[in-house]
Simulated scan of single mutants.
Amino acid sequence: MTLRVCYGGTFDPVHNGHLAVARAARDASGAQVFLLPAADPPHKGPTHASAQQRARMLDLALAGETGLKVDRRELYREGPSYTIDTLLELRHELGDELPLAWLVGGDSLSQLHTWHRWRELFAHAHILAVQRPGSHIDPESLARIAPLVGAEVAARWRTLDALQASPAGGLAVLPMEELRPESSTELRRRIAAAYSDWHEWVPPSVASYIDRHDLYSTPGPDSGSL
């Protein structure tokens, strides 16, 4: 069976960096990649756009993209959007045999031990960690930076291709060839400061949606100054 990759996040808003990661996961693995906007992200404060607005921007960004889809399931669940709850729901729907991977950034991998019931994640999915240019994810580095995570995954390292061979339990690395400048925080700052170059960071359809609904024009607590 073909690997399915899940890419969770706030996507507040979705930008070209998110799309580059999703495309890289699709192209490297041949998987379908589902982007899951969180309704109530447990590791972040309140979002700046509503859940439905963030999901709609994802719809616009992924229109016409082969192998990339939006999954809204976390928007319909009350309480914090815990990954373990999402994986349990997916397993109930998809069965126990489908290879399933949860896509995380390298920074999130080193913080995995702070996630709710984090050790249980491996019973239901693989973890696919994005390695940005200039960084390196390896057993020694991970054990030094995040000893609990390093110990848990010591016997779980796999190649990306090997994730197809089992439904869950592995850790693989997805290298990114190009360093992306985009971040949602910086993007919101640029929009609030009326910098016109922010349009280059998102698909045109998303830029039009942000302009039409006047999103992010008011500086938030993380906007700072430029």
Rank of each mutant, 00 (worst) to 15 (best):
L215K: 01
A39T: 08
A194L: 13
D197W: 06
S183G: 09
E186I: 12
H213N: 14
H213P: 10
L121F: 08
D71S: 07
E74H: 10
K44M: 08
G150C: 01
W102P: 07
R26I: 12
P13F: 02
H124D: 08
G79A: 09
H18N: 05
S81V: 02
E65P: 10
V206Q: 07
F34M: 12
L35N: 02
G224S: 10
S110W: 01
G8R: 09
A101V: 00
C6D: 15
G67I: 05
W201C: 13
G64Q: 03
D71R: 08
P99S: 05
G17P: 11
S217E: 04
V206F: 02
E152W: 02
F122S: 10
V173M: 07
T86Y: 04
Q131N: 07
W201Y: 14
H116V: 03
C6T: 15
S81F: 09
T83H: 11
L128H: 06
M1C: 10
A143K: 10
D197H: 02
T86N: 06
L100H: 04
L94F: 11
E140G: 09
L87D: 02
W118N: 00
L35P: 08
Q32F: 08
S29R: 06
P221S: 10
L160G: 10
G169V: 07
H43I: 10
L121Q: 08
G220Y: 06
R77K: 08
L109C: 09
K69V: 14
P219Y: 01
G8P: 08
A20G: 00
A123Q: 15
H126Y: 06
A143R: 12
R73Q: 12
A24W: 11
P204F: 07
D40W: 13
A146W: 11
